[in-house]
Write a protein that binds this DNA or RNA. Structure first.
Length: 504
DNA sequence: AAAAAAG
């Protein structure tokens, strides 16, 4: 594998942006950023796909900022020239922060280039004022964007660039009507860029109906796994009533690592958060029943380390980028494989290692089986041991410590409980462990340190069938992200010890 | 069916 060590400057990014990125420690582009840059700068429509945590925001953000500040035929006027639509308010704030950072040295005449967040749950006044003062780039959630557009405060007729972040989510049923309304307000000539880690075929087909000959860019081979080699994945069968206890035990042994816990419902998120707080954990919650202030406060506390446990619904499943989340726990099984991929993608970002644990109760078995199959996770079936013991957590043996980033010391696999080895309890429970993809020194690691390989990310038995990292215009051959099996030897019996949750 | 997103 050839390592190409490019810089943003050699990709044609202007000096102000290069300098801002460098000050933030970003010297070398990630694979998706490098692949996207030439096409995006040329004004092409594109669909960009890269795994979670691999730099998609700047993959559209940098060329977008570069284009609108470099187009001498259309100098910036203060009317929005680029619009980025995102699915949640918190992601809106994060993307706004990322773009503002990259744009901090860009100027329009005698003023700074303006990036404005437009999202719900907050008063209108400040947002309207910001638009009136001049907004070159707008980042927003659909409802408030349409609201302000309908009120005449947001003018989208002058857009050069439209981005749908988490595009498959934005084009899903819940959001589609709003997105169609937004699209109608934008000029036909605008460049459209769609980004996500997950892009089901039907969504791509739908996207093509409003895009102009989009190029589909993938930072990995079309058939590579959707999740990271560097994230160890576990599924445990669990009685619903035991789940808080199981989570507690994982957290207790978890040292300083931050943990995100996902639930399916807002009520459960609040309940789990409350119960963990009662048990003394420094925990916060983010879900749609909370006021916007509380949501942002919880997320901020989690970012700063003031709290180290965050319980959330899928509102926080996508895009949220927080350093050093070592564990993701699916307290309730996600609805589909996309949700699973995005949830566990909160850990193991940018080449770091992570641990993902999914607790599966009886009602969730079918859902879990479908996810396992769709992603070819190859987990043992939790149903095998479902009815045996109400106290499975006694035998939980989930690694509670992340052993360092890739390239560092070898991560160890969890050990099966001693009594399993002794055979005493073998009929009751085995930890439903799954040590996925042990070969972990490949692309993710390199990309994580900012390098780019011509063969990016994972390889695998079938990687040769595609030109890794090559754009393709044909489309259609992508296939669901993981129908094929990627079997690899599993050796649960002689797996190495991990830190014990219950001290043995 | 739930969550998200306007209020």
């Amino acid at each position: 594998m050839t390592v190409l060590k490019h810089s943003f400057a050699t990709l044609g990014v202007r000096e102000e942006i290069v300098r801002a990125l460098a000050e933030d420690g970003k010297e070398h582009p990630f694979a998706i950023q490098e692949l996207t840059m030439p096409l995006a700068l040329a004004g092409d429509d594109l669909i960009g796909q890269a795994r979670t945590g691999m730099g998609k925001t700047l993959a559209f953000g940098v060329p977008l900022l570069n284009s609108i500040t470099t187009d001498t035929e259309r100098p910036l006027t203060g009317a929005p020239r680029a619009l980025i639509v995102v699915p949640t308010r918190e992601l809106c704030l994060q993307v706004h922060g990322d773009l503002s950072g990259a744009a901090k040295y860009l100027r329009v005449g005698d003023r700074a280039l303006s990036v404005v967040p437009i999202y719900g749950g907050r008063p209108y006044e400040a947002q309207i004022e910001a638009l009136q003062k001049g907004a070159d780039v707008v980042v927003g959630t659909p409802g408030r964007l349409l609201d302000l557009a309908n009120q005449g405060h947001l003018q989208l007729g002058g857009l050069s660039v439209l981005v749908l972040d988490e595009a498959d989510e934005m084009l899903d049923l819940g959001f589609l009507p709003d997105i169609e309304r937004i699209l109608r307000l934008t000029p036909d000539s605008r460049q459209a860029m769609l980004f996500s880690a997950t892009m089901p075929d039907p969504i791509i087909t739908l996207a093509r109906t409003f895009m102009n000959q989009p190029t589909h860019i993938r930072a990995e081979a079309p058939h590579s796994a959707a999740t990271h080699d560097t994230t160890e994945q576990f599924a445990y069968r669990a009685h619903a009533m035991d789940k808080v206890e199981m989570v507690s035990r994982i957290l207790q042994a978890n040292g300083r690592g931050a943990t995100m816990i996902f639930t399916r419902t807002k009520r459960t998120a609040q309940k789990v958060s409350d119960e963990l707080a009662e048990r003394g954990f420094k925990v916060g919650a983010v879900h749609g029943d909370l006021g916007q202030g509380a949501r942002e406060k919880a997320l901020k506390s989690f970012r700063t380390g003031e709290i180290d446990v965050l319980v959330a619904t899928d509102v926080a499943a996508r895009g949220i980028d927080i350093d050093d989340i070592t564990h993701v726990i699916n307290y309730q099984c996600p609805d589909d494989e996309q949700a699973y991929v995005h949830r566990i993608g909160r850990t193991g970002r940018a080449g770091k290692t992570g641990i993902a644990v999914t607790l599966v109760d009886w009602d969730e078995m079918a859902k879990w089986t479908a996810i396992d199959k769709a992603l070819a996770l190859d987990c043992p079936d939790p149903a095998e041991t479902y009815s045996s013991s109400p106290h499975l957590y006694e035998e939980l043996n989930i690694p509670t410590e992340v052993k360092g980033t890739v390239g560092g010391p070898k991560k160890q696999a969890p050990r099966r409980p001693a009594r399993d080895e002794a055979g005493a309890d073998s009929a009751t429970e085995k930890p439903r462990t799954r040590n996925r993809q042990r070969q972990r020194t490949r692309g993710a690691a390199k990309a994580g340190t900012g390098h780019v390989e011509t063969t990016t990310e994972s390889t695998g038995p079938d990687s040769s069938e595609a030109q890794d990292g090559q754009a393709d215009n044909a489309g259609g051959e992508a296939g669901p992200a993981g129908r094929r099996r990627r079997r690899r030897p599993r050796k649960p019996a002689d797996a190495a010890p991990g830190a014990s949750v219950n001290a043995g």
